[in-house]
Design a protein around this nucleic acid. Structure first.
Length: 301
RNA sequence: GGUACCAUAGCUCAGUAGGUAGAGCAACGGACUGAAAAUCCGUGUGUCCUUGGUUCGAUUCCGAGUGGUACCA
């Protein structure tokens, strides 16, 4: 057991200032950072994902930043395994580790674990996407209802991705999705201290606006142009890139695309907050209150 | 300066043959177990520009004012 080992989670909405807090904590606590950001994984995407700068990356060791290509397939389960492997190594020589990011599902996978389920199957998904397109969502609803009526009763029937994943699990496992979902928290052998960062909505939106403008100034359009040919890849179904692609397609002017990026980033931030607010074990702080955060962590030890 | 048109939600606008109003977007709230920066669900938040008049009753009709737009000077 490693009861003296502590994972410090730094989470919150996009543009709140997680990176700075995490780096300062890592310096003070003499440790390293694992990124829990599902788009900073990709080495081809830099400006649009607000990746830590080369200076920041040099100042503190970051894990799982730019470790993938947009052509790789990756998923939450692999993220869970990768993170736990890194933590195991880190805790041999450190008492603290930092998990920093805004991808709620990925964070939960590390902190609480996820069930043992089959991975995505591309051929099956291609079939289901075709089915959705040609026969409509009622076709998927009927299929899932037949395969797993229990799950169908609780799932959002209008959400094609939820429907397709459940069908996929049933087909690949030969069992019901509802039966495979244990929803049991896996016990971790380290403590987890959860820090949430947030501030007034108005200020957050202002930060988002400024950051998006900064991205354009730093060359987001050029970065997106390099990736335009790969725009069908899932990794590029990402705020900041998809709007610029619309601009390249002649649908939106650049100023309009920027406005759309801001709007979609605000909505993303809202979804993140909805996710994190649900977790009562998160202790919330203003991003300016670094000293309070540090004090809170020290009191926990 | 004159004439015409316009003024309704944060924005763009619809509407009420006179009975205090509704769409899209934004915003707000929520869901979420291998696509998650994804995907999906729910909610109208309003001195109907101001002011007189007609009327049982005016956001709606009439007059005046203010602001805006266009054209003419």
């Amino acid at each position: 057991m490693m009861k003296d080992k502590n994972l410090i989670l730094v989470c919150g909405p996009t543009a709140i200032g997680k990176t700075d807090i995490a780096i300062n904590l890592a310096r003070v606590l003499d440790t390293e950072i694992i990124s829990a950001d599902s788009r900073q994984f990709y080495r081809e995407m830099n400006i649009g994902t607000a990746k830590p700068s080369p200076e920041q990356l040099a100042a503190v060791k970051h894990h799982l930043v730019g470790h993938l290509s947009i052509h790789n397939t990756y998923n939450v389960s692999r993220f869970e395994q990768d993170s736990l492997a890194i933590l195991e190594g880190l805790f041999k020589t450190h008492d603290h580790a930092i998990l920093c990011g805004g991808s709620g599902l990925y964070i939960d996978a590390v902190c609480s674990g996820i069930d043992d389920l089959p991975d995505a199957d591309e051929a099956l998904r291609a079939r289901m996407n075709k089915q959705l397109q040609e026969e409509g969502i009622t076709s998927l609803q009927a299929e899932l209802k037949a395969l797993d009526p229990e799950y169908y009763a609780s799932v959002d029937p209008e959400n094609p991705k939820r429907l397709m994943r459940a069908i996929e699990v049933c087909r690949l496992s030969g069992r019901k999705y509802s039966g495979l979902r244990k929803s049991k928290n896996k016990k971790r052998d380290f403590n987890i201290i959860r820090i949430g960062l947030n501030t007034d909505r108005e200020i957050l939106f202002e930060r988002i606006s400024r950051r998006n403008e900064q991205m354009i100034a730093e060359g987001l359009v050029e970065e997106a142009r390099e990736l335009y040919d790969q725009r069908e890849l899932n990794a590029l179904n990402t705020v900041g890139y998809k709007e610029i692609f619309q601009h390249f397609d002649g649908i939106w002017s650049l100023p309009l695309a920027l406005e759309k990026i801001k709007t979609n980033t605000r909505r993303y931030a809202k979804r993140q907050l909805t996710w994190f607010k649900k977790d009562p074990s998160i202790q919330w702080f203003e991003p300016k209150d670094f000293d309070k955060i540090l004090q809170f962590i020290k009191n926990k030890n």
